[in-house]
Design a binder for these strands. Structure first.
Lengths: 138, 138
DNA sequence: TAGGTTTACGCAATAGAGTTGCAAAAATGA
DNA sequence: TCATTTTTGCAACTCTATTGCGTAAACCTA
Protein backbone atom coordinates (compact mmCIF):
# COMPACT_ATOMS: atom_id res chain seq x y z
CA UNK A 1 0.00 0.00 0.00
CA UNK A 2 1.05 3.57 -0.62
CA UNK A 3 2.98 4.70 2.43
CA UNK A 4 0.84 5.99 5.24
CA UNK A 5 2.93 9.14 5.49
CA UNK A 6 2.32 9.86 1.81
CA UNK A 7 -1.45 9.48 2.08
CA UNK A 8 -1.44 11.63 5.19
CA UNK A 9 0.47 14.30 3.30
CA UNK A 10 -2.06 14.30 0.47
CA UNK A 11 -4.98 14.67 2.88
CA UNK A 12 -3.25 17.46 4.78
CA UNK A 13 -2.32 19.38 1.67
CA UNK A 14 -5.97 19.31 0.63
CA UNK A 15 -7.07 20.54 4.04
CA UNK A 16 -8.84 17.36 4.99
CA UNK A 17 -8.83 15.80 8.43
CA UNK A 18 -7.05 12.50 8.66
CA UNK A 19 -9.43 9.67 9.52
CA UNK A 20 -9.34 5.92 9.07
CA UNK A 21 -12.06 5.95 6.40
CA UNK A 22 -10.38 8.61 4.33
CA UNK A 23 -7.07 6.84 4.48
CA UNK A 24 -8.68 3.59 3.36
CA UNK A 25 -10.57 5.17 0.47
CA UNK A 26 -7.62 7.24 -0.77
CA UNK A 27 -5.30 4.27 -0.51
CA UNK A 28 -7.72 2.23 -2.59
CA UNK A 29 -7.74 4.81 -5.36
CA UNK A 30 -3.96 5.10 -5.30
CA UNK A 31 -3.52 1.34 -5.40
CA UNK A 32 -6.11 0.55 -8.09
CA UNK A 33 -5.08 3.44 -10.36
CA UNK A 34 -8.47 3.50 -12.09
CA UNK A 35 -11.80 5.26 -11.93
CA UNK A 36 -14.31 3.86 -9.50
CA UNK A 37 -18.07 3.90 -9.34
CA UNK A 38 -19.85 4.16 -6.04
CA UNK A 39 -20.72 0.48 -6.42
CA UNK A 40 -17.05 -0.47 -6.66
CA UNK A 41 -16.34 1.36 -3.45
CA UNK A 42 -19.37 0.01 -1.67
CA UNK A 43 -18.21 -3.49 -2.51
CA UNK A 44 -14.67 -2.85 -1.35
CA UNK A 45 -15.85 -1.31 1.90
CA UNK A 46 -18.77 -3.61 2.67
CA UNK A 47 -18.54 -3.16 6.42
CA UNK A 48 -18.44 0.63 6.16
CA UNK A 49 -21.51 2.85 6.21
CA UNK A 50 -22.85 3.99 2.85
CA UNK A 51 -23.46 7.51 4.08
CA UNK A 52 -19.89 7.90 5.25
CA UNK A 53 -18.70 6.74 1.87
CA UNK A 54 -20.83 9.34 0.13
CA UNK A 55 -19.56 12.02 2.46
CA UNK A 56 -15.98 10.95 1.97
CA UNK A 57 -16.36 11.13 -1.80
CA UNK A 58 -18.02 14.53 -1.60
CA UNK A 59 -15.28 15.86 0.65
CA UNK A 60 -12.61 14.51 -1.69
CA UNK A 61 -14.38 16.03 -4.68
CA UNK A 62 -14.80 19.43 -3.02
CA UNK A 63 -11.17 19.52 -1.89
CA UNK A 64 -9.68 18.53 -5.22
CA UNK A 65 -8.58 14.98 -4.44
CA UNK A 66 -11.08 13.32 -6.74
CA UNK A 67 -13.17 14.49 -9.65
CA UNK A 68 -16.66 13.34 -10.48
CA UNK A 69 -17.07 12.13 -14.03
CA UNK A 70 -20.33 13.18 -15.69
CA UNK A 71 -22.15 10.23 -17.15
CA UNK A 72 -25.60 9.92 -18.61
CA UNK A 73 -26.15 6.62 -16.85
CA UNK A 74 -26.86 8.37 -13.57
CA UNK A 75 -24.15 6.47 -11.73
CA UNK A 76 -21.45 8.67 -10.34
CA UNK A 77 -17.89 7.67 -11.15
CA UNK A 78 -14.81 9.11 -9.52
CA UNK A 79 -11.17 9.44 -10.51
CA UNK A 80 -8.06 10.87 -8.91
CA UNK A 81 -7.29 14.46 -9.84
CA UNK A 82 -4.08 15.68 -11.32
CA UNK A 83 -1.50 16.72 -8.76
CA UNK A 84 -2.19 20.34 -9.61
CA UNK A 85 -5.66 20.33 -8.07
CA UNK A 86 -6.11 21.61 -4.56
CA UNK A 87 -8.98 22.83 -2.44
CA UNK A 88 -8.79 26.34 -3.90
CA UNK A 89 -7.93 25.74 -7.51
CA UNK A 90 -9.82 22.84 -8.90
CA UNK A 91 -9.48 23.07 -12.64
CA UNK A 92 -10.25 20.12 -14.86
CA UNK A 93 -9.68 19.38 -18.44
CA UNK A 94 -9.89 15.64 -18.29
CA UNK A 95 -10.59 13.34 -21.16
CA UNK A 96 -12.46 10.16 -20.39
CA UNK A 97 -13.33 7.06 -22.31
CA UNK A 98 -16.37 4.99 -21.47
CA UNK A 99 -16.62 1.51 -22.91
CA UNK A 100 -20.11 0.52 -23.97
CA UNK A 101 -19.23 -3.18 -23.57
CA UNK A 102 -17.65 -3.45 -20.15
CA UNK A 103 -18.85 -0.14 -18.77
CA UNK A 104 -15.44 0.89 -17.48
CA UNK A 105 -14.42 4.51 -17.56
CA UNK A 106 -10.78 5.37 -18.11
CA UNK A 107 -8.99 8.66 -17.54
CA UNK A 108 -6.94 9.46 -20.60
CA UNK A 109 -3.65 11.26 -20.28
CA UNK A 110 -4.08 13.82 -23.02
CA UNK A 111 -5.65 17.14 -22.17
CA UNK A 112 -8.77 18.39 -23.85
CA UNK A 113 -8.02 20.63 -26.83
CA UNK A 114 -8.54 24.24 -25.83
CA UNK A 115 -11.77 25.73 -27.11
CA UNK A 116 -12.43 29.47 -27.09
CA UNK A 117 -15.90 30.91 -27.53
CA UNK A 118 -16.23 34.66 -28.00
CA UNK A 119 -18.06 36.27 -25.08
CA UNK A 120 -17.86 33.19 -22.86
CA UNK A 121 -15.57 32.43 -19.94
CA UNK A 122 -14.60 28.79 -20.12
CA UNK A 123 -13.37 27.42 -16.80
CA UNK A 124 -13.61 23.70 -17.21
CA UNK A 125 -13.70 21.22 -20.05
CA UNK A 126 -14.79 17.61 -19.99
CA UNK A 127 -14.52 15.40 -23.02
CA UNK A 128 -16.26 12.06 -22.83
CA UNK A 129 -15.60 9.55 -25.55
CA UNK A 130 -17.69 6.43 -25.92
CA UNK A 131 -17.15 3.28 -27.88
CA UNK A 132 -15.29 0.03 -27.39
CA UNK A 133 -12.11 -0.12 -25.34
CA UNK A 134 -8.88 -1.87 -26.24
CA UNK A 135 -9.70 -4.92 -24.13
CA UNK A 136 -13.21 -5.41 -25.50
CA UNK A 137 -12.19 -4.85 -29.14
CA UNK A 138 -9.77 -7.78 -29.00
CA UNK B 1 -45.98 26.82 -33.92
CA UNK B 2 -44.03 24.69 -36.31
CA UNK B 3 -46.48 23.35 -38.84
CA UNK B 4 -48.29 20.23 -37.76
CA UNK B 5 -47.39 18.50 -41.01
CA UNK B 6 -43.72 19.20 -40.39
CA UNK B 7 -43.78 17.75 -36.87
CA UNK B 8 -45.67 14.74 -38.14
CA UNK B 9 -43.03 14.21 -40.80
CA UNK B 10 -40.24 14.32 -38.23
CA UNK B 11 -41.97 11.75 -36.03
CA UNK B 12 -42.68 9.49 -38.98
CA UNK B 13 -39.15 9.65 -40.31
CA UNK B 14 -37.90 8.56 -36.88
CA UNK B 15 -40.35 5.67 -36.79
CA UNK B 16 -42.40 7.06 -33.96
CA UNK B 17 -46.16 6.87 -33.68
CA UNK B 18 -47.92 10.19 -33.86
CA UNK B 19 -49.65 11.06 -30.62
CA UNK B 20 -50.80 14.28 -28.99
CA UNK B 21 -48.10 14.17 -26.29
CA UNK B 22 -45.28 13.65 -28.76
CA UNK B 23 -46.49 16.45 -30.97
CA UNK B 24 -46.68 18.81 -27.98
CA UNK B 25 -43.22 17.93 -26.69
CA UNK B 26 -41.52 18.07 -30.08
CA UNK B 27 -43.26 21.33 -30.92
CA UNK B 28 -41.98 22.78 -27.64
CA UNK B 29 -38.39 21.86 -28.45
CA UNK B 30 -38.68 23.25 -31.98
CA UNK B 31 -40.21 26.46 -30.74
CA UNK B 32 -37.88 27.11 -27.81
CA UNK B 33 -34.72 26.18 -29.71
CA UNK B 34 -32.80 25.41 -26.52
CA UNK B 35 -31.91 22.49 -24.29
CA UNK B 36 -34.43 21.50 -21.70
CA UNK B 37 -34.20 19.78 -18.37
CA UNK B 38 -36.88 17.41 -17.22
CA UNK B 39 -37.99 20.11 -14.81
CA UNK B 40 -38.53 22.58 -17.64
CA UNK B 41 -40.72 20.10 -19.43
CA UNK B 42 -42.61 19.10 -16.33
CA UNK B 43 -43.42 22.76 -15.76
CA UNK B 44 -44.54 23.30 -19.34
CA UNK B 45 -46.73 20.21 -19.28
CA UNK B 46 -48.08 20.45 -15.76
CA UNK B 47 -51.29 18.62 -16.52
CA UNK B 48 -49.49 15.74 -18.21
CA UNK B 49 -48.31 12.63 -16.41
CA UNK B 50 -44.65 12.49 -15.33
CA UNK B 51 -44.28 8.92 -16.49
CA UNK B 52 -45.51 9.70 -19.98
CA UNK B 53 -43.04 12.55 -20.17
CA UNK B 54 -40.18 10.26 -19.22
CA UNK B 55 -41.30 7.71 -21.76
CA UNK B 56 -41.65 10.32 -24.45
CA UNK B 57 -38.14 11.60 -23.81
CA UNK B 58 -36.75 8.07 -23.80
CA UNK B 59 -38.49 7.26 -27.06
CA UNK B 60 -37.18 10.47 -28.63
CA UNK B 61 -33.67 9.74 -27.38
CA UNK B 62 -33.70 6.15 -28.63
CA UNK B 63 -35.02 7.18 -32.05
CA UNK B 64 -32.58 10.00 -32.60
CA UNK B 65 -34.87 12.99 -32.16
CA UNK B 66 -33.26 14.19 -28.94
CA UNK B 67 -29.94 13.58 -27.25
CA UNK B 68 -29.35 13.34 -23.56
CA UNK B 69 -26.63 15.62 -22.27
CA UNK B 70 -24.44 14.10 -19.55
CA UNK B 71 -24.16 16.32 -16.55
CA UNK B 72 -22.62 15.73 -13.14
CA UNK B 73 -25.58 17.39 -11.44
CA UNK B 74 -27.67 14.28 -11.89
CA UNK B 75 -30.40 16.15 -13.76
CA UNK B 76 -30.97 14.95 -17.26
CA UNK B 77 -31.01 17.63 -19.95
CA UNK B 78 -32.18 17.10 -23.51
CA UNK B 79 -31.48 18.82 -26.78
CA UNK B 80 -32.61 18.36 -30.38
CA UNK B 81 -30.33 16.19 -32.49
CA UNK B 82 -28.76 17.22 -35.74
CA UNK B 83 -30.84 16.42 -38.77
CA UNK B 84 -28.50 13.59 -39.61
CA UNK B 85 -29.57 11.46 -36.66
CA UNK B 86 -32.19 8.80 -37.17
CA UNK B 87 -33.32 5.70 -35.32
CA UNK B 88 -30.56 3.56 -36.84
CA UNK B 89 -27.61 5.91 -37.00
CA UNK B 90 -27.41 8.01 -33.89
CA UNK B 91 -23.96 9.48 -33.83
CA UNK B 92 -23.14 12.44 -31.65
CA UNK B 93 -20.25 14.76 -31.43
CA UNK B 94 -21.96 17.62 -29.73
CA UNK B 95 -20.29 20.38 -27.84
CA UNK B 96 -22.16 21.84 -24.91
CA UNK B 97 -21.66 24.78 -22.63
CA UNK B 98 -23.03 24.80 -19.13
CA UNK B 99 -23.17 28.13 -17.31
CA UNK B 100 -22.34 27.94 -13.61
CA UNK B 101 -24.34 31.10 -12.95
CA UNK B 102 -27.69 30.54 -14.62
CA UNK B 103 -27.42 26.77 -15.04
CA UNK B 104 -28.44 26.81 -18.69
CA UNK B 105 -26.92 24.36 -21.09
CA UNK B 106 -26.39 25.42 -24.68
CA UNK B 107 -25.67 23.29 -27.71
CA UNK B 108 -22.77 24.80 -29.59
CA UNK B 109 -22.58 24.59 -33.33
CA UNK B 110 -18.99 23.49 -33.70
CA UNK B 111 -18.23 19.79 -33.75
CA UNK B 112 -15.91 18.19 -31.25
CA UNK B 113 -12.35 17.91 -32.55
CA UNK B 114 -11.74 14.34 -33.67
CA UNK B 115 -9.72 12.30 -31.21
CA UNK B 116 -8.13 9.01 -32.15
CA UNK B 117 -6.85 6.54 -29.57
CA UNK B 118 -4.82 3.57 -30.80
CA UNK B 119 -6.66 0.31 -30.12
CA UNK B 120 -9.97 1.96 -29.28
CA UNK B 121 -13.14 2.35 -31.32
CA UNK B 122 -14.57 5.78 -30.66
CA UNK B 123 -18.25 6.02 -31.55
CA UNK B 124 -19.39 9.12 -29.74
CA UNK B 125 -17.81 12.25 -28.36
CA UNK B 126 -19.28 14.69 -25.89
CA UNK B 127 -17.46 17.84 -24.91
CA UNK B 128 -18.87 19.74 -22.00
CA UNK B 129 -17.52 23.19 -21.27
CA UNK B 130 -18.30 24.97 -18.06
CA UNK B 131 -17.93 28.57 -17.02
CA UNK B 132 -19.90 31.75 -17.43
CA UNK B 133 -22.09 32.34 -20.47
CA UNK B 134 -22.29 35.47 -22.58
CA UNK B 135 -25.41 36.70 -20.79
CA UNK B 136 -24.07 36.21 -17.27
CA UNK B 137 -20.65 37.72 -18.06
CA UNK B 138 -22.26 41.00 -19.03
C1' DT C 1 -0.66 16.47 26.85
C1' DA C 2 -4.94 18.00 28.73
C1' DG C 3 -9.11 20.39 27.61
C1' DG C 4 -12.11 22.76 24.59
C1' DT C 5 -13.69 23.18 19.90
C1' DT C 6 -14.54 21.57 15.51
C1' DT C 7 -15.38 18.01 12.31
C1' DA C 8 -16.46 13.18 10.99
C1' DC C 9 -18.99 8.92 11.84
C1' DG C 10 -22.96 5.83 12.05
C1' DC C 11 -27.70 5.05 12.33
C1' DA C 12 -32.42 5.98 10.90
C1' DA C 13 -35.34 8.44 8.24
C1' DT C 14 -36.17 11.09 4.15
C1' DA C 15 -35.91 13.16 -0.50
C1' DG C 16 -35.99 12.79 -5.33
C1' DA C 17 -35.17 10.90 -10.01
C1' DG C 18 -36.57 7.50 -12.75
C1' DT C 19 -38.84 2.78 -13.68
C1' DT C 20 -42.28 -1.10 -13.85
C1' DG C 21 -46.86 -3.44 -14.11
C1' DC C 22 -51.21 -3.25 -15.70
C1' DA C 23 -55.64 -2.04 -17.65
C1' DA C 24 -57.81 1.25 -20.68
C1' DA C 25 -57.33 4.21 -24.70
C1' DA C 26 -55.41 5.51 -28.97
C1' DA C 27 -52.76 4.76 -33.36
C1' DT C 28 -51.67 1.89 -37.21
C1' DG C 29 -52.43 -1.14 -41.17
C1' DA C 30 -55.14 -4.24 -43.88
C1' DT D 1 -64.23 -1.08 -39.77
C1' DC D 2 -61.68 -4.53 -37.27
C1' DA D 3 -57.59 -6.72 -35.35
C1' DT D 4 -53.06 -5.76 -33.73
C1' DT D 5 -49.65 -3.08 -31.71
C1' DT D 6 -48.20 0.76 -29.11
C1' DT D 7 -49.02 4.49 -25.87
C1' DT D 8 -51.11 6.52 -21.92
C1' DG D 9 -52.18 7.24 -17.06
C1' DC D 10 -52.34 5.64 -12.48
C1' DA D 11 -50.24 3.43 -8.48
C1' DA D 12 -46.58 1.37 -6.51
C1' DC D 13 -41.86 0.70 -6.40
C1' DT D 14 -36.55 0.86 -6.96
C1' DC D 15 -32.44 3.02 -6.28
C1' DT D 16 -29.18 6.80 -5.61
C1' DA D 17 -28.10 10.18 -2.62
C1' DT D 18 -29.00 13.47 1.31
C1' DT D 19 -30.31 15.25 6.01
C1' DG D 20 -30.70 15.28 11.15
C1' DC D 21 -28.75 14.17 15.20
C1' DG D 22 -26.24 12.12 19.03
C1' DT D 23 -21.72 10.13 19.74
C1' DA D 24 -16.91 9.61 18.73
C1' DA D 25 -12.72 11.05 16.93
C1' DA D 26 -9.39 14.60 15.23
C1' DC D 27 -7.42 19.05 15.73
C1' DC D 28 -5.63 23.24 18.02
C1' DT D 29 -3.80 25.90 21.65
C1' DA D 30 -1.87 26.73 25.80
Amino acid sequence: MARYSEIKKILKSHKLRITDRRIDVLEFFLREKRTMSFKDLEEEFKDSDRVTLYRTLNAFTEHGVLHKIPDDSGFATYGLCHDTCDSEDHYHDHMHFKCNECGNIECLEENVPVVEIPGYQVKEANLILKGTCRTCVA
